[in-house]
Design a protein around this nucleic acid. Structure first.
Lengths: 222, 222
DNA sequence: ACCTGAACACCGTTCAAGT
DNA sequence: ACCTGAACACCGTTCAAGT
């Protein structure tokens, strides 16, 4: 180990594109996307705001870069492997990564200039499907339905006002002034299922993923 | 008809919550979500920015209100009807509405305080599933996978940099400096399918919707 | 080559005031 | 009751300058 303090004194390391993007992700993870401003990012890096513009052209480029790093965290399927297992692994990884970076969910699918990690991710999925015998048209169908589900689920999960642990308190608060008569099915749904101890919305992910993969398995590949 | 000019001189009508929200939707439809600021909204209503605060507490409340109006545009399924047809109709309607208001896609599932139209929408879906014999647990599965797909698809569609008409030009521009060797599956996918005349990403919606509804039909309701 | 300081044209929002 | 004017504490970004 040449330098023992590499991880701690990197506030003094020279600014690089990489360091700026990593700091941006840290900031969004801890304080949310709204707290990610050029000024707060500069402060986190102990530098003046204008120093950032020397490494990235503008804030949009920072968001593009950050999205590509997040895409890079998602496991890629192995072309040539069993397609169902490989796509399952990728889907679960995507959900896990987006769980770590909930602020990234709205960014991921809305950026217009994909970076290399994003392209490699798409490449790996398509190559896996083609290697398994899917026609180009069927691969398009499969990818569209799978990705819509994975991202849609991540959006819903990221916006839940509670998790499995905090559900009881949130439930009590919501029910206090909820017009139960106007929404009987919703009330039944909440009181008898969603807010019961043991219910975890996250479990719906595996159900939906299986349903979609079952459907893709049943259909002719060409 | 008591007043012949009701639709045209409503710039002079008194400000109401309703008028503010309608103007906000118009502004976002024509100029995007980024152009929706308190100041631009006030200008569209020919009023000073601070006048808005008399009808809505803050910008967040405007976004909440706008989301609820958009939810209100989505057809609700009829409980007691054939569940598959009813949910299909709702899903198609949701996609159409989100196509009209692409800026709303990122807002719809990320707001924390649902309005009455949002609650009625959820109520109608759950009531339809329950009336068709789905158990509460199965209704939760069905709703989660369907909604994740519908919103996820809308997100993807809203962020496509092209539509069926403009695809050829966009394709040519993208291919000019695309590293085809690094992404062979992606290149094949683009040149032999997605950018071919006649391909419409929107058609993937019907494929995925059918696949999911087929899956739900096959599964026991309880 | 890399960073800074001051400024510009924006934000959402508060507060005190007008009618 | 409803709207306004001026101000505050923020934004992203440009431009000219420092080392």
């Amino acid at each position: 180990m040449p330098t023992r303090s590499a991880p701690t004194d990197d506030r003094r390391a020279p600014l690089t594109r990489e360091r700026v993007l990593r700091a941006a992700i840290d900031l969004a993870d801890t304080a949310g996307l709204g707290a990610l401003t050029m000024r707060s990012l500069a402060q986190a890096l102990e530098v003046q705001p204008m120093a950032l513009y020397h490494h990235l052209p503008n804030k949009d480029a920072i968001l593009d870069g950050v999205v590509d790093l997040v895409f890079g965290e998602i496991d890629r399927p192995e072309p040539g492997g069993a397609w169902r297992e490989e796509l399952e692994r990728r889907a679960r990884s995507a959900r896990r990564v987006l769980g770590r970076h909930p602020w990234a969910v709205v960014l991921l699918e809305s950026r217009r200039s994909p970076g290399p990690a994003t392209l490699q991710s798409h490449e790996a999925v398509l190559a896996t499907l083609r290697a398994a015998g899917f026609s180009v048209a069927m691969a398009a169908h499969a990818y569209a339905v799978l990705d819509a589900f994975v991202y849609g689920f991540a959006v819903q999960e990221a916006s839940l006002p509670f998790n499995a642990d905090t559900a009881p308190e949130v439930a009590a608060a919501m029910m206090r002034d909820f017009p139960v008569d106007a929404y009987p099915a919703l009330t039944e749904f909440a009181t008898e299922h969603v807010f019961r101890p043991g219910y975890d919305f996250g479990d719906e992910f595996e159900y939906g993923l299986d349903l979609i993969l079952d459907g893709l398995e049943r259909v002719p590949l060409a």
